[in-house]
Nucleic acid binder design. Structure first.
Lengths: 303, 303
DNA sequence: TCTCGTATTAAGTTGCCGCTTAATGATCGA
DNA sequence: TCGATCATTAAGCGGCAACTTAATACGAGA
């Protein structure tokens, strides 16, 4: 009889480049994988995986089995979720994806506390600047995202409004003065967070009268880590554009001040995307609720 | 995580009147059942089965779980069947239901041989005079039936034509003579197979010219086992109505002779009913094919 | 040529899970 | 009141499945 542990095992194999890689990701030795696979193939009297040189390839039978498995495994997982929900329990795996900066600084502490209150939870947090890639890479329940997102037809929930500010340190203002108008920016030192997927040097500004300007800036400093850029600004090296969540305390405490406060950039709201596969699980509901309570709180004090 | 062995276990429990009864049908001791159930309930943090006095009762959660399980278990079983089919293998459980007489004398030997040729097959044969009850009682793949059947909307396959004859032993004919006309039967000794569900004493005869007569007989001997009635006829005690399959050899060898050979009774064809749940399994296909080859063969020699 | 990564076979170990036995308690009917 | 059936708890056993280590073979790339 087919065992679902075998189906899980095969599913893991099917998305691994080699048996050795699968062994590593399963935390066992290669022979364990090799002989377990051989055993399953023997039981079915079918070859499931072509393992010649190069990457693993599923045979037709293997592909068929994996395909059918996914449905069954999904149903079983959903069933487990529903039973846990009926027991009023927060338990089971909770796989969260978040961007590096926001994830490390905001999501991780909340998840950590949440897990502490629910000992039967098995949380995992994957930080990635490529959320769509991470989604495809492995199973996930909740993905936290900051900013605009292509329409993914995935259920999402807004966790907090998140404005974007132009900021600089007082020491910078003292040395170089402050721009009074977007046009003045060109004469200033600017730092940006340069990621692959966004045009970080084009700032779409909206003026106090509603007029819109696209400002192309020429950064003197760039980094793909927002915290590094923030530190650079804190050190008085220039003007940067950062999210409210990132610099809110700096602004409150006067370590940074807003530049062109009458001009605004489009919001980069914080949203949670929910995997449709698991939307109805109690643990996910509870965690997203927690996020939606705790994340906005941190920003409220600032007007 | 939920284990499907647990789901099978719970499904077995759900159709048992008591834990002790379940233990017997699972071939284990009562504590094994009790503690395994307790363990599952602990894991889910839910009570699944109310066990007070009287019969077991599922709780709402238990009923929900069983309900959902059946779908998953069914899919898994179907998947196993399909994989076996792809491997071109005859294997797995094969659960056959057949009536007592025909099952014991005709189906059992064929199934026995079929299982011998396919060592990975786990056959089970349930003989029952109440096929519909047996269908409901447990899982089944193929049900053999002789005679008319209410329209069950179940896929069926005719295995053989099976006529019904009026027969008697030559010794009886020598002592009492033979009826030349249905009307003569009234003066003869008649034995019948009396089952609950059929009116065994009303013989719907069709004459050589196509005329139809319903003949009410008054048996001097009755039994619910066809073989006993046949033996009674072989011993020269009277005239009985029997299926071709049952008396074909007796007729061939002259131990019995046909009475009113120009008159016929409605056929009681031999059919296989296929459980829609498992129609596409290779082992079932193969077994029914085997039946449809071997069963008619036995009767062909007789005109 | 050497080395590294991969895959497989063989043999040995271990942990756990499911079972059994034994004993207790509860309930019901005779 | 006794006996029978059922359910449960506690304690201990055993089998087996999954894993490990060790050894071998193969190919590709430096």
């Amino acid at each position: 009889m087919i065992d679902i542990a075998d189906l899980r095992f095969l599913t893991a194999l099917s998305s691994a480049p080699s048996l050795a890689a699968a062994a590593r990701s399963l935390s066992v030795t290669p022979p364990a994988v090799s002989q377990r696979l051989a055993q399953i193939e023997d039981r079915l009297h079918l070859r499931l995986i072509e393992r010649g040189r190069g990457p693993l390839r599923l045979t037709a039978e293997g592909a068929f089995l994996i395909e059918r498995s996914s449905g069954i495994l999904g149903e079983l997982e959903t069933l487990a979720d529903e039973m846990a929900a009926r027991a009023g329990r927060i338990e089971g795996p909770l796989q969260v994806i978040a961007p590096f900066g926001f994830g490390r600084l905001r999501v991780a502490p909340i998840l950590s506390r949440f897990a502490g209150e629910n000992p039967e939870l098995s949380p995992s947090l994957v930080l990635s600047e490529d959320p769509l890639g991470a989604m495809r890479a492995g199973p996930w329940d909740v993905m936290i995202h900051v900013g605009r997102l292509p329409d993914l037809r995935i259920m999402q929930r807004k966790l907090a409004t998140n404005r974007r500010f132009l900021v600089a340190a007082p020491s910078y203002a003292a040395r170089f003065g402050l721009p009074q108008d977007p046009g003045d920016i060109a004469g200033h030192r600017v730092g940006v967070v340069r990621e692959d997927r966004a045009d970080a040097t084009l700032w779409p500004l909206t003026g106090p009268d509603g007029s819109e300007t696209s400002l192309r800036v020429h950064p003197v400093f760039a980094c793909n880590d927002g915290e590094v850029v923030r530190a650079w600004a804190l050190d008085g090296f220039g003007i940067v554009e950062r999210s409210e969540w990132s610099v809110f305390q700096d602004l409150r405490d006067g370590r940074l001040i807003r530049i062109l406060p009458d001009w605004s950039l489009p919001d980069a709201d914080i949203v949670a995307l929910l995997n449709p596969r698991a939307v109805r699980a109690a643990r996910i509901d509870a965690f997203v609720n927690r996020l939606s309570v705790e994340i906005p709180t941190a920003a409220i004090p600032l007007s």
